[in-house]
Amino acid sequence: MNLFRRDREPSRRPVEDVDLDSLLALVAESLGYSYDFALDGSSVTLSGESDLVVRLTGLRREAGRRAREDWPMLVSEHLAHAVATAGDRLDVCDLEQARPLLRTRVESVDDVPDLTRVVGRHLSADLVELLTVGSRAVRPEEAGCWPVAAVRALDLAVANVRREDRLWVEAIELSGTPVTRLTGMTPSAATHLRWLGDHLRVPSDGVLVVLPDPYTLLVHPVDGIGVVRAIERLRVHAERTDGLSSQVYWWHGGRLTLIKADIVTRRGQTRLVVAPPPEFAKVLARLAV
């Protein structure tokens, strides 16, 4: 099907949109579809055995943020995803449909192949909180269809987690050091740090945290010099579980900060070398007095 029909008025749309349409047309044809663009460019109808309307608003926004050399990949992924999910009842581009299903999932930055292809925000330098719908991450071009910014969508997901997800709380010991384990049914456990005080007493200096997996938190209060032993116990436990992160974090003031602790083996002896961030080092110095 000809992309530019003679019976229509000459396009007054930005050249970038026209160029993106040309890519969309090429990819649609390669997938075996004919196509028909809406006059305002907000969607394209793919025609094959049946018709499939693909929204383009979010794709255009995402393309505007990316270099042109990224456009072929964006377009290919967008149309391939639309075709693959054509039978789904849920239209993620419709916020009213997607909103009740929005959740969060925490992953290691190293485990996310391309951070530009997901919607999320950093909890720390090495952990990211992803926006999900159902069991999968939301794509930027899907969130780009919504009438709210991505940060607002993440806040909606966090509100859903707080309202609908629950944590089980139990006291355990790690080699004699008492810690609290909080376990959930969804991979959003770290999201619950925001209202940790609803589950246990949180001292003014915060708590130590490890995340052995996305469903679990282990925490220890920062309320005495015993916190030094707790760092060691938590770090060794996190290393053995080989899960979401092997590190220990400090949750304080609404922020998750890495307490870098390396397990070093030298001459047959193993020891923990801790390099606390400056703020936490001040807390340790005060507690040691």
Rank of each mutant, 00 (worst) to 15 (best):
G58M: 03
L193Q: 01
R152W: 04
A86Q: 11
V219F: 07
T186Y: 10
D94C: 10
V44C: 02
L123S: 05
P100Q: 07
R233S: 13
M185S: 14
C145M: 12
G58V: 04
P14F: 09
W195F: 12
R235M: 07
S246C: 09
V53D: 10
E129R: 12
A157C: 11
G144S: 03
T257R: 13
A67L: 12
A189V: 11
H192R: 13
A150K: 08
L154C: 07
D91A: 10
G32Q: 10
A281I: 02
L217T: 05
L272T: 08
P276N: 09
D262E: 15
I259R: 01
P113W: 04
V273M: 10
L127E: 05
A189I: 07
R233K: 15
S42V: 03
T177W: 06
G268R: 08
D110H: 12
L287E: 00
L102S: 04
L174H: 12
V222H: 00
T257N: 11
V15L: 13
V151Q: 13
Y35F: 15
V128H: 07
A80W: 00
D223K: 00
W250E: 00
V219S: 03
T177G: 02
L52P: 08
P221Y: 05
R162G: 04
E142F: 09
V151S: 14
R68G: 06
A98P: 04
D242M: 11
D51V: 04
R6L: 14
V15M: 06
W168G: 09
E77L: 02
S22C: 11
P140D: 04
E170P: 06
A84I: 02
P214K: 03
T85S: 12
S43G: 09
L244P: 07
T57V: 15
V148Y: 13
D21V: 00
R55P: 03
S30Y: 07
A38C: 06
R5H: 14
A288W: 05
V289C: 07
G243T: 12
E62K: 03
L95R: 07
V75F: 00
F4I: 15
V283G: 01
R55N: 08
Q97P: 05
L102V: 09
V158Y: 01
W251Q: 02
Y35L: 02
E170H: 14
E29L: 13
L59A: 10
M73G: 02
D40W: 09
P72E: 03
L102F: 10
R99N: 07
L123C: 08
L39V: 06
A285V: 05
L31T: 01
H78E: 00
H192G: 05
P214E: 10
R136P: 01
K282C: 02
P277Y: 09
E279H: 06
I225L: 03
P113H: 03
L79Y: 01
E49G: 15
W195M: 02
L272W: 09
T45S: 11
V54F: 02
D91C: 07
G134P: 06
G253I: 10
P277G: 08
Q247E: 15
D36L: 11
Q97G: 12
L284P: 07
R6K: 15
L244E: 09
A125N: 12
T132I: 12
